Simulated scan of single mutants.
Amino acid sequence: MMRNKEIVLFYAGCLGLCLPFFLIAGAASTEMLVLCVSEALMLLCAFGLFTAWRYHRLRQLNDQMRKVREGRYQMNPQDYEEGELSILHSEIYKVTVQLRESAEQLQTQQQLLSDSLSDISHQLKTPLTSMMMMVDLMQQPQMEQAQRQEFLRLIAAQLTRMRWLIQSLLKMAKLEARAVQFMPQPTTVRSLINRSLSQAEAEMVRYGVETVLDCPADFTLTLDENWTAEALGNILRNCAEHAQQGQVRIMCMHNALVDEIVIEDNGEGIDPADLPHLFERFYRGRNAKPDSVGIGLAMSYQIITAQSGTLQVFSQPGRGSRFVIRFVHQIV
């Protein structure tokens, strides 16, 4: 404690102030001088003890801050009673909690990044390996022209899939980084759904799926048409893949609280174990197709929730799936 210059200066100042009183008391009588010196020593000792206690508490806070700096975030919020040190301790505790939460979020994000890079590497390495093998085989002079043309068709299909995958990953990265600037505008839901159906037309035709639209012509929502059409298109593709030769029904509902868009199919349904993970990136359920990547529904979820909407799925094996999109009315 005496290493602190302000404490030394305080004691020196007190001694300088008391010295004239000691001289006056000594001139009066020896007893008066002893009394004044004793009183001064008692006050200085009391102040010294109190200051030592406060510095002890400050050292404890310093030790706790050092532990926080070392990554140890344990701290008891009830160590102090009322007073200025208690306020300081409370503020340090709040900062400690925030740092701990930030460290946990950073660790989670680092793990997510590691998993994402691993998934992306796998998704790109598989078609690249396949294409390299086909290119090697095509270099053989004895290969028939028909086989060569088939290999070229397969390589073109793989390149198209890789381009779609890279574009989807870039969109997902922008959505997760909140770098997408949505441009909400009043949009009729029928035009939005027709645009989504055109995006999923190839899958609808490929799997022989019939679409039924039950939506009022004047039903309007305020949202970003481009991004929302892509979200609905991904859901429609998923329904088409799992409702081959079946039907996909699109319904719109409006009430005083929410606007709803419901997309349901009468296909094979979703395994209950897959439902909690359906909107996770790169998650492939038990009924996933061999060429499924597991990114479409995750992107739909990101797009809809980024516009203050919700996306839920209800399904039973053998009885189809029901995707419910809700936008709550904003109360001004």
Rank of each mutant, 00 (worst) to 15 (best):
L19W: 03
P20I: 01
P20H: 01
I24N: 10
A28V: 14
S29I: 14
M32A: 11
V34A: 13
L35W: 12
L35D: 06
C36E: 05
C36I: 12
C36N: 08
V37C: 15
M42P: 04
L43E: 03
L44K: 00
A46K: 04
A46F: 06
G48W: 09
G48H: 13
G48I: 06
W53G: 05
R54K: 14
R54P: 00
Y55G: 08
R59F: 09
Q60P: 10
Q60D: 07
L61Y: 04
D63C: 01
D63W: 02
M65G: 01
M65C: 07
M65A: 11
R66F: 02
V68Y: 00
R69Q: 05
E70L: 13
G71N: 00
G71F: 00
P77V: 06
E81Q: 04
E81K: 02
L85R: 10
I87T: 06
S90N: 07
E91H: 13
E91F: 03
Y93I: 00
V95I: 13
T96Q: 02
L99R: 01
R100F: 02
R100D: 09
E101I: 11
A103Y: 05
A103S: 06
A103K: 12
Q105M: 11
Q107R: 09
Q109H: 05
Q110W: 10
Q110H: 07
Q110M: 11
L112R: 10
S114Q: 08
D115S: 10
D115W: 10
L117H: 15
D119L: 06
